[in-house]
Amino acid sequence: MSRLTHDRYCDEIIARTDALRATIRGADLTATVPTCPDWTLRELVLHVGRAHRWVGEIMRTRATEAVPFEQVPESAPGSDDAAALDAWLEEGATRTAEALRAAGPDEKVWSWAWERGTGFWARRMAHETIVHHADAALTTGTGYEVAPELAADTIEEWLEIVAFARAAGDERAAGLTGAGRSIHLHATDAPDAEWLIEFGEDGFAWSHGHEKATVALRGPLTDVMLVFNRRLAPDSGRVEVLGDAELLDFWLERAAFG
C-alpha cells in the first residue's frame, strides 16, 4: 500500500481532531484513559493539542534542531473549562495543518525520526490524532471509525516506527528477533490489507501478502489496527488470533517507542 498525499494528511489532522472534539464533548474529563492509564481524558487531550502546536512551531520556524516544548506558544488552554479546551484544540490543529500545507511535503526540517521533513510530520500528526481519538472513544464508550486507507497506513507507519526504535537502541524493541517465526495481519473487510512480519536473528522485516505464519491476527481492518497499536486487547472478541498467541503477545509487549 502506498502513502497518502500530503494534503490528505493535512485534511485528516483537522478531521480527526474534530472527531476527537466530538467524542469528549460533555464527557467526564477526569476519567482515567484505560489505554493510557497514567492520563485522565483531559491530559490525553492536552497531549494531542501540545503535539499539534509543537509541530506547528517546527513548521513556522523551519527548525533544523529540536524545539523545546517550553518554547511553544500557547501550550495550554486559557482556562480550565471544557469550552476553552475545545477551542484550543481546534485552533492548534487548524494552524498546524495550515502550516504543513503551506510548507508542502518536501521542506527539510528537524524530526526525531528516519525522515527529516514536512511530509513526515504531516503523516505523524494525522496518525497521532487517529490513535489518540481511539483512546478517547474507548474511554467514553462512544463509536470509532476510520477510513480503510488510514487504518492501513497507521499500521505501516507503526511498523516503520518500531523498526526505527529497534535500530536506535530501544531496549524493548531490541528483543524483536527470533528466526523462523512470523506474524500475519489479515483484514477481513479490505482488499489487500495483509501484512507478513518475519523475524530473523537481527530483527524483523515485513511485506504484503497472504502467507501462512506462526500466528495470524484476523478481523476488521480498524480492529486489527487497534490491536496492533495496543488499543484493543487481542482477546476482545472483535478479532481472531489463530496459532501461537504468545508470539503476538511477544510483539505487543516489545513493539514500543519512547
Rank of each mutant, 00 (worst) to 15 (best):
M1Q: 10
S2C: 09
L4P: 01
H6G: 04
H6I: 05
H6T: 06
D7Q: 12
Y9G: 00
C10M: 05
D11C: 09
I13K: 01
I13N: 03
I13M: 15
A22F: 07
T23K: 03
T23Q: 09
I24H: 02
A27I: 07
D28M: 11
D28Q: 11
L29M: 12
T30M: 09
V33Y: 03
W39E: 02
R42Y: 09
E43H: 09
E43Q: 15
R50H: 11
H52P: 04
W54P: 00
G56K: 02
G56F: 06
T61R: 15
A63M: 10
A63L: 10
V67K: 05
P68A: 13
F69E: 14
V72N: 04
E74G: 06
G78N: 11
G78A: 15
G78C: 10
D81V: 05
D81R: 04
L85H: 00
D86H: 09
D86L: 05
E90D: 15
E91Y: 06
E98A: 15
E98G: 11
A99W: 02
L100F: 02
L100C: 01
A102K: 13
A103K: 00
G104I: 07
D106E: 15
E107M: 11
K108T: 15
W110Q: 05
W112H: 12
W114R: 12
W114C: 08
R116Q: 14
G119C: 07
F120T: 06
F120L: 13
W121K: 03
A122C: 09
M125F: 06
M125S: 00
A126F: 07
E128F: 03
T129S: 14
T129V: 13
I130G: 00
A134L: 10
L138H: 14
T142Q: 14
T142P: 01
G143C: 08
Y144M: 07
E145W: 11
E145D: 14
P148V: 01
P148G: 00
D153C: 03
W158M: 12
W158E: 08
L159W: 05
I161R: 04
V162K: 01
A163F: 03
A163K: 02
R166T: 01
R166E: 02
A167E: 08
A168P: 02
R172W: 10
G175K: 08
R181Y: 05
R181S: 06
R181A: 06
R181M: 06
R181F: 03
L185Y: 03
H186W: 11
D192M: 12
A193I: 08
A193V: 07
I197E: 01
G200P: 02
E201A: 14
E201I: 07
F204C: 00
A205C: 08
S207H: 13
H208P: 03
E211K: 15
K212V: 13
A216V: 05
G219S: 07
G219Y: 03
P220K: 05
T222G: 04
V224M: 10
M225Q: 04
L226K: 03
F228V: 02
F228P: 01
A233Q: 15
P234S: 10
R238N: 10
E246K: 12
E246N: 15
E246F: 10
L247F: 12
L248I: 08
L248F: 09
W251L: 05
E253S: 13
R254I: 08
A256K: 13
